[in-house]
């Protein structure tokens, strides 16, 4: 399944890139490639079972003081 999925992703993004090349904006292409690399790396990491910390942890950390206050108030 993963192999087919990977193929679909490759074809899909390849087509996207092809369309982009016609328009010919370097910035667009660069952004496309960078974002694509991030996305695919994420998927592959997930595939090989390498655990990535969820970005929510960071957000939770930032808001921790507020949320603990809130909890106290409702406790």
């Amino acid at each position: 399944m993963w192999l087919i999925l990977l193929m679909v992703i490759l074809v899909w993004s390849g087509i996207g890139l092809k369309g982009l090349r016609k328009k010919g904006s370097v910035k667009d292409m660069a952004t496309y490639i960078i974002l694509w690399a991030i996305g695919t790396t994420g998927l592959m990491l997930y595939r090989f079972g390498i655990s990535i910390p969820t970005p929510l942890d960071g957000i939770a950390y930032i808001y921790h003081p507020l949320s603990s206050l809130w909890k106290q108030w409702f406790a």
Binding site: V11, W12, I15, G16, K18, G19, K22
Partner: peptide, 9 residues
């Protein structure tokens, strides 16, 4: 471009 290839995908 999307539509042309859409059915393939």
């Amino acid at each position: 471009m999307e539509r042309r290839w859409f059915f393939l995908i």
